[in-house]
Design a protein around this nucleic acid. Structure first.
Ligand SMILES: [Mn+2]
Ligand SMILES: [Mn+2]
Ligand SMILES: [Zn+2]
Ligand SMILES: [Zn+2]
Lengths: 122, 122
DNA sequence: TCCTTTATGATAATAATTATCATTACTAAT
DNA sequence: ATTAGTAATGATAATTATTATCATAAAGGA
């Protein structure tokens, strides 16, 4: 509700770190230039931004949540070789999931697993 | 590797409790008749069974993991009204996800959210 | 039965996230 | 510009689910 320097730099960080960073990674990145920043403030604002739809929260089963400034519909793929999370486009998937005949589905969380292109090449 | 009474009753419990129970729910259910059972043993064996493919582990973002004895391909739907997890069949979904043109996808975790039929009726 | 090995039970440790609360600093009104 | 009111922050404690540790117990083969 009130504008703060912290909100500004945290949102900027999510926009500039395009690797689906965790709250802690964002915190460590910002701490270099803003040593008084608190991890609690990072969590608080990331969750608030996600609620407001300014960013996406990406749940990784058995691991920390990650954050994504890209709002276009896309899925996430966790490469079990390199550990990176890659964006994946699956056209028609969202419509297929949300148009279920009996259940009123309003949202979904999906994580794909496997081996990414670059790891397969090696 | 060794057969124990604990393995037997824990696997039986997952088969008997068809509500996608958590490790703790299984533990509390079994403790009534087996007061010496340890929660660590429940976790250990549930994870082992899941690795062996005897049961499924169902990840619920932001909540405890759940366990499922039904091995047939099906998805899970979390009703935000009643909090229950319902089974959902989405024919063709698995093939669509695993046959991605570029990524070698071998597995996925999906959780659907919305309002279930019975809650919508009220 | 005896021996070796693996599993168990009890509890400590871990790790991510949220809660608490005194202090700080926005914002708007004076 | 000063003030007053309110919301946000920073520091840290608490929470919660799960895993790790390790002494003891029990499985199963010889
Ligand atoms: Mn993304
Ligand atoms: Mn199920
Ligand atoms: Zn990779
Ligand atoms: Zn419901």
């Amino acid at each position: 509700m009130k504008n703060t320097r912290q909100k500004e730099i945290i949102l900027d960080a999510v926009n500039h770190l395009d690797n689906h960073p965790t709250a802690d990674e964002i915190y460590l990145f910002l701490k270099k230039d803003h040593p008084r920043l608190s991890l609690a403030t990072v969590y608080r604002n990331l969750n608030q931004f996600a609620l407001e739809g300014k960013i996406r929260k990406v749940s990784v089963p058995g691991d920390s949540d990650r954050f994504d400034a890209v709002l276009d519909v896309h899925e996430h793929f966790y490469c079990e070789k390199c550990g990176l999370i890659h964006d994946v486009s699956i056209p028609g998937l969202e419509a297929q999931l949300l148009n279920h005949p009996t259940m009123k589905i309003t949202d979904y969380k999906l994580m794909l697993f496997g081996e990414c292109e670059s790891c397969r090449a090696h």
